[in-house]
């Protein structure tokens, strides 16, 4: 179980998360919605351990481990996966090489034998088929020259290969047309299991037509201001984020000073 307790974070001295609380039980899918600048992506990056963000208060407990004490690569090896909003291009490094290095780093950590080239290829080809990626993408440089949809599929492919315990999907739907969205969502749904939790960050309700969450949270000014079931997403769709911002501004900014 993931338990985020009163989390504060800043970038370049500017506070972004102001006392965020969240619990995600094993096997649950939580959606986090919120207007631009509410701290959605910051939450994703902080959970993944990006050190351009400074944690200024609070704690994150993950199955009894102090998540914030682990460096990024150890979080990944322990089973935390972040699907990037903007997957990064790495020219000169083939996707196959990168994926194999990642899978084997994680298998090593789990005490499993590393894949050799043959094992890896048969595994990766099967997974690529499932997300509708052509084999040629194995031999191209990581994300280089990929279209938006291809990049997002590559993220889902990596998620499938790395078999995370906790997957954070940061606006995986952004920039996708409806067909690509469906394929990506199917990929995510296939990976739902009682042992795997997911945090799905999105600006729009439409992704939640395909990935049905157990809970929906609304983030505003770095705090969760409302939580509810799927109907909350529909409510947002209907009324927009305006009422939330208005409410958050009216409330005393306890989060900013607490912690």
């Amino acid at each position: 179980m993931l338990k985020i307790d009163n989390l504060h974070a800043a970038v370049d001295g500017k506070a972004i998360l102001n006392g965020l609380n969240l619990e995600v039980k094993d096997g649950e899918v939580h959606a986090i919605m919120g207007p631009n600048g509410s701290g959605k992506s910051t939450l994703a990056q902080v959970l993944a351990g990006r050190d351009t963000f400074q944690v200024t208060g609070g704690a994150v407990d993950w199955d009894g481990t102090d998540l914030l004490a682990l460096p990024a690569e150890e979080r990944a090896r322990a089973g935390l996966f972040l699907a990037f909003q903007y997957p990064v291009e790495i020219p000169g490094v083939s996707n196959a090489y990168f994926l194999k290095a990642a899978v084997n780093a994680i298998r090593r950590h789990r005490g499993l034998p590393e894949y050799d080239a043959m094992d890896f290829l048969s595994r990766v080809k099967a997974e690529m088929k499932a997300v509708g990626m052509r084999e040629e993408f194995l031999y191209r440089s990581v994300n280089e020259g990929f279209s938006g949809g291809e990049k997002k599929r590559n993220e889902v492919l990596q998620m499938a290969l790395l078999e995370p315990k906790l997957a954070v999907l940061d606006e995986t739907d952004s920039g996708l047309d409806i067909d690509a969205l469906r394929i990506v969502a199917e990929g995510v749904n296939r990976l739902r299991s009682p042992e795997r939790s997911m945090i799905v960050i999105t600006h729009y309700q439409r992704l939640l037509d395909y990935i049905v969450p157990d809970q929906v949270h609304v983030l505003s000014h770095g705090r969760i201001v409302r939580s509810g079931g799927r109907e909350l997403a529909l409510e947002l769709e209907e009324h927009g984020y305006g009422w939330i911002d208005a409410g958050a501004k009216a409330a005393p900014a306890t989060g900013a000073t607490g912690g």
């Binding site: 351990g49 990024a72 790495i90 290095a101 990642a102 780093a105």
Partner: peptide, 14 residues
């Protein structure tokens, strides 16, 4: 770039 290194680290690669 820092973004490339972080991307790799997020995949378990040192």
């Amino acid at each position: 770039g820092e973004d490339q290194l972080f991307y790799a680290m997020q995949r378990g690669i040192s």
